[in-house]
Amino acid sequence: MALTGELLLVVNPGSTSTKVALYRGETVVAGASLDHSGAPWATSREVIDQLPHRVRMVREFLKEHGIGPGSLVGIVARGGLLRPVRSGAYLVNEAMVADLRDGVGGRHAANLGGLIAWELSSEGRIPSFIVDAVSVDELGPEARLSGFPSIPRKSLLHALNIRACARRASRDLGRDLAGLYLVIAHLGGGFSICPFYRGAMRDVNNSNEEGPFTVERAGTLPALALLELWRRLGGRELKHRLTSRSGMFGYLGTKDARAVEKKAKEDRHTRVVWEGLAFGVAQEICAMAASYPEKLDAVVLTGGLANSADFVAMVREYTGFLGRHLVYPGEDEMEALAAGALRVLRGEETTRVYPETEAV
Rank of each mutant, 00 (worst) to 15 (best):
L3D: 01
E6K: 14
L9F: 06
L9I: 02
V11M: 02
T18A: 07
K19V: 04
R24T: 11
G31Y: 08
L34C: 03
S37R: 12
G38I: 03
P40Q: 10
P40S: 09
R45G: 08
I48M: 13
P52G: 09
V58T: 05
K63H: 06
H65W: 10
G66P: 01
P69T: 04
G70F: 01
G70M: 00
L72F: 03
G79K: 10
G79S: 10
L81M: 15
P84S: 12
V85W: 09
A89D: 05
L91Q: 08
E94W: 01
H108M: 07
A110P: 01
G114M: 06
I126A: 02
I126G: 03
P127M: 03
S135W: 01
S135K: 05
E138C: 05
F148D: 02
S150V: 10
S155M: 09
H158L: 11
H158G: 12
L160E: 08
C165V: 09
L182R: 05
G190E: 11
P195Q: 10
N205Q: 04
E209F: 07
G211A: 06
V215P: 12
A218W: 12
G219N: 14
L221T: 14
L227E: 12
W230L: 13
G234D: 14
R236F: 02
E237M: 12
S246L: 15
F249R: 15
G250C: 14
L252K: 08
D256P: 04
V260P: 10
E261N: 07
K265M: 11
K265G: 05
E266K: 13
W274S: 08
A278Y: 13
A278V: 12
Q283C: 13
Q283H: 14
A287K: 11
A290I: 00
V299K: 02
V300P: 03
L305E: 14
S308N: 14
F311T: 10
A313T: 10
V315Q: 09
E317L: 09
E317N: 11
Y318N: 07
F321N: 04
G323V: 06
L326R: 07
D332G: 10
L337E: 06
L337F: 03
R346K: 11
Y354D: 06
